[in-house]
């Protein structure tokens, strides 16, 4: 590699140096997929990211070259370079970067042959289409349609294309006419090199809902422990729950052992009545 470096023309040399400088300046170096982003939107995304991240489009050969010169784990990024990848530089938490990139994504219409990342569902109901060839087009795309009150109506909610499947030409045309935009547009992180580790999207994609559920579970566990172990806790609800538990235990014992005391006698009567009723029902 070193030999090849000497043969780089000045402008390429300069670009490699620029990339290496950015890699020095930022804690995080990653690759993003910029496929299908219209130029104007790309500029917009860059502007929005400016404070947090820098996106640099460079020839793949120069990217690879730079990573090789940087050495270490940066070399691992080369395996992720693709036809539509660009470099991204940022500081801080790679998980947060992933999340912020996901959040800035928008949707666009699908082109024939593209693979949808999610189920494409067309809901039942009226459309704005006037009767015409559109009915046939819808039906050919697998969407049951009919004329209703002078308009085209979709008869039932239908999953037209499943996640991971390719969208065919007929489907793409019809979906576009229906205004359905299944394709996400935005920067997709392909890989990140951060503090000497390589992070891939499957790791970087954290499920907020799962964490939320875990917090709820942890809080429930803490509550259960506090109540069950009768840990004195000056916390709203815990002491009340401890009292309630003790009362229930006393009541359960009273009913089970037929201890005739105020506070349980009604429950014992109730139990006897229910037993009699059950026997009567036979």
């Amino acid at each position: 590699m070193a030999i090849y470096t000497h043969h780089l023309p000045a402008w390429k040399r300069e670009e490699v140096e620029q990339i290496k400088d950015l890699a020095d300046k930022y804690a995080l170096v990653g690759l993003v997929d910029v496929y299908g982003i219209p130029a104007r939107q790309f500029q917009q995304i860059r502007r929005n990211l400016r404070s947090n991240a820098v996106v640099k489009v460079a020839r793949n050969t120069l990217v690879e070259h730079s990573m090789n010169e940087l050495g270490g784990h940066f070399v691992d990024l080369n395996g992720k370079v693709s036809e539509h990848s660009a470099l991204i530089f940022a500081n801080g938490n790679p998980f947060k970067l992933f999340k912020s990139l996901e959040q800035t994504k928008t949707k666009r219409s699908a082109k024939a042959g593209e693979i949808t990342p999610e189920d494409i569902v067309v809901p039942a109901g009226p459309t704005t289409f006037k009767p015409g060839p559109i009915v046939g087009e819808l039906q050919q795309a697998g969407i049951p349609a009919a004329i209703d009150g002078g308009k085209v109506k979709i008869k039932e909610t239908k999953t037209v294309v499943k996640a991971g499947e390719a969208i065919n030409k007929k489907q793409a045309d019809v979906l576009s006419k229906l205004g359905i935009k299944p394709m996400p547009v935005g920067l997709s992180l392909l890989a990140v090199c951060y503090e000497g580790d390589l992070y891939l999207p499957d790791v970087l994609s954290v499920d907020d809902e799962a964490y939320k559920a875990k917090i709820t579970l942890a809080a429930q566990q803490a509550f259960n422990l506090a109540v069950n172990a009768a840990v004195p806790t000056a916390c709203v609800g815990v002491t009340e729950a401890q009292i309630a538990k003790a009362v229930r235990e006393a009541r359960n014992l009273g009913v089970e052992a037929s201890i005739y005391e105020k506070g349980v006698i009604e429950l014992i009567i109730s139990k006897a009545y229910r037993q009699a009723n059950a026997l009567k029902a036979i």
Partner: peptide, 18 residues
Amino acid sequence: AALDGVDIEEAISKAAAA
């Protein structure tokens, strides 16, 4: 003192709330 002798695993999984 309260946790003495308590099986924490069991206590956290036993629903205690009314």
